[in-house]
């Protein structure tokens, strides 16, 4: 039997990522799968990023399309060794290679799902919704697409061990925290139409302070904190 085409693989990670993990557990399989699953997740995330950047328009479309795949890839890649160690500490025998394939399948699944959500996000963006609401909408959709991706990783963990809930909660918390902080470091994704366009904004505070500000601002309570108007490749609005 020949290897599946990239379209078949896309369909498999969407319908049954566990089957992909089970059917590909040799080193040769990992080498074959990695570029394909990264391409699927990268293209999906870039499409979603382009829609997110369309809120501001101009160069922001390109910048957001470049940064979204990194946002999708970074948390599982950074967390992988820690997740492996956490499950081993709970006496669950899972190979690093199996977790790596599951992470790739999870990322690809999330990438396909965010690209499917892109038109839904585009609709409110095209009628110019309020900025803070657009940020929350973006974050919500990312979480919505990310959860089925996480289930692909969780499904690869074999039964057994003890106190599994510690490893499960720790893994989820770690990925969530890394997603949030990576998003904060790589911002802006949704830029205000009146602000400067920048590839990366200076790091001001952290994700928790930023979320607090966004929530209060979305309720109409504005404080004295505002996004800086400088950053890497920053350009003032015309």
């Amino acid at each position: 039997m020949s290897r599946p085409s990239i379209l078949t693989l896309t369909s498999q990670v969407l319908r049954d990522p566990q089957a992909v993990v089970v059917a590909h557990d040799t080193p040769a399989d990992l080498g074959w799968l990695a570029p394909r699953l990264l391409a699927i997740s990268g293209v999906g995330a870039a499409l979603f990023g382009a829609v997110v950047g369309s809120y501001r328009g101009g160069e922001q479309v390109l910048y957001a399309a470049m940064k979204l795949p990194i946002l999708l890839w970074a948390p599982p890649l950074l967390a992988l060794p820690a997740i492996h160690a956490a499950w081993r500490a709970c006496d669950v025998e899972v190979s690093y290679r199996r977790l790596a394939v599951a992470s790739l399948a999870g990322m690809a699944r999330a990438g396909v799902l965010v690209s499917a959500l892109a038109p839904i996000l585009w609709l409110p963006y095209s009628v110019e919704v309020e900025y803070h609401f657009s940020v929350l909408l973006f974050a919500g959709m990312l979480v919505l697409a990310g959860l089925p991706g996480l289930t692909a990783i969780a499904g690869a963990i074999p039964a057994g061990g003890h106190r599994r809930w510690i490893a499960a909660t720790g893994s989820l918390a770690l990925i969530g925290l890394l997603l949030a902080q990576t998003g904060w470091l790589l911002r802006p994704f949704v830029a205000r139409p009146t602000t400067a366009v920048a590839l990366l904004r200076p790091v001001e505070g952290d994700i928790l302070s930023g979320l607090g500000t966004t929530l209060t601002s979305s309720l109409g309570l504005y404080g004295d904190w505002d996004a800086g108007r400088d950053g890497l490749l920053a350009r003032e609005p015309r």
Binding site: A34, L38, P81, S103, L104
Partner: peptide, 20 residues
């Protein structure tokens, strides 16, 4: 001797390719 696509993937996603 890994294919070029696999080696290039390692540039971005090396933690998943460490088992190789």
């Amino acid at each position: 001797g890994q294919p070029a696509a696999t080696a290039l993937s390692a540039l971005l996603a090396w933690p998943v390719l460490v088992p190789l």
